[in-house]
Each structure stands twice: as structure tokens, then as C-alpha cells.
Simulated scan of single mutants.
Amino acid sequence: MTVWDRPEPPNRPAPLDRERIVAAALALADEGGLEAVSLRKVAARLDAGPMRLYRYIATKEELFDLMVDAVQAEILPEERPGDWREVLRTLAHRTRRAALRHEWLADLLGGRPALGPHGLALSESTLSALDGLTDIDTAMRAVETVSSYYIGAIRREITNLRAERATGLSKREWQRSRGPHLTRALDTGRFPALSRAVREAADVDPETSFATGLDWVLDAVSAKLLPPPA
């Protein structure tokens, strides 16, 4: 039985419900990451006894499920986008923006299927956009392919942001600090392809890189869904 299958207990002796519990957990996670979240800390934030929370949520994993579903409500677009490409593109970009607001989300993306109401609504919206274009197995592989790209890209971006904060150095400052070592390595001539990339490749911002890679993945998926006529 999931947390959504269990009814909430009465609001006594003081007002408390899952919505307030999840809001407090979200605030803790936004401030200090998932490691800052526990039922004890959430109870303290709400000025409630920890045992009261167990009447609403049985485990920390259930709390994480509720937190993810709350953020998925932010990801759901108010209006359905146009064709299947726009649906998947919108999902990817809205997930990225949600993860930048709630960095802890990157640690939970790509786990078990989300079974909360907003997670199910996202899945329904995504799969229905592909309905009629292909068989269900191909549609599932298409969604998995696109989500694998944006989940990986989001995790990499969040990891870089965390590393930047941990070192106290911006990307350019870090590059300058490691520059002499990299220059010596490249000057050996052992890494010609890497040398060219370092010296000639354009330095693009994360959003541009994300959007470009996403378009390439969507192009590849499109070729499978809509193969050219023989």
C-alpha cells in the first residue's frame, strides 16, 4: 500500500496534514539537501512531536515520494504543449528548471516510477502525446531515451554547481587554477583530440548545451518514430 492509499488521520489535537509536512520537508531540503531531511527535523520545524508524523507518513522514503510528487506539480505544464516533440521538450526543460530550484531533486530523478497523482499525470501527458504515432513499446523506448538524456544532463549540471560551491571557485577560476597542469599535459602531444577541444571548442552556457543535446536526441527519436518513406 502506498502513502496515497492510506487516509490521513483526523486533524487533532493541533492542525497537521501531509501537505504541511511536505512543505516543511521541501523547505529543509532546499536549505540543506536530502541529508537535512528527517521526520524528526520536519517535526521540529512544525513544532510537533515526531511520533505524530508517523501517523501520516510511515518512512522517510514515503516522505521523499511525497516531496517528488509535490515538485512534479511544478513540472506539469498548465496547458498541454503542441506535438509530441514539444511535449517531451517542455517536460525536459521544466524538469531542469525544477531541479535548479530544488537541487536535491537531481538525487531522486530516475529512480522507481513515480506513483503520486502528479507523477502519474506527467506520465499520462507524455505517453498520450505519442499515442497513435507508434506502438506502445516503441513509445516507451522513446520516452526512456529522452528522459535518460535530460536526467543525466541535469545531474551533471547540479554536480558542477555543488562542486563550485564546495571549492569556492567559479568555473573560470577553477579552470585557471588547473591551467598549468593541463597545459603541460597537452604539450606532450599525447592528447591531440583533447588539445583541439580545449583550444578551439566554444564555451557554451549550461542551458544552451542542454537545449542542443535535447534537440539532437529528439531528432534521433523522430527518425525512429517517423522513418522516411522507402
Rank of each mutant, 00 (worst) to 15 (best):
G33Q: 00
L100A: 13
A70S: 07
G33E: 00
L91V: 11
A106R: 05
D107V: 04
L53R: 03
A211T: 06
P50Q: 05
R94A: 08
H93E: 15
R176K: 10
R6Q: 11
S177D: 03
A25V: 02
T134H: 05
P227E: 02
A114Y: 02
E86M: 10
S125H: 09
R12Y: 14
L109S: 00
L16R: 07
A70E: 08
L127I: 15
L46I: 02
R141K: 10
A70L: 02
D65L: 10
P13C: 13
K171D: 11
N160C: 11
P180G: 02
H118V: 05
G111P: 00
E8Q: 06
L105Y: 08
A202H: 13
A139N: 01
M140W: 12
L100F: 07
G189H: 09
L28E: 01
I158L: 12
D47E: 10
E31D: 13
R52V: 13
S170M: 08
A220I: 15
T59I: 13
D135F: 00
T159F: 09
R112G: 11
S195R: 06
T208Y: 04
S125M: 15
T208D: 04
L122I: 11
V22G: 01
E19V: 09
A70C: 07
E86T: 06
A43F: 02
A48R: 15
N11G: 14
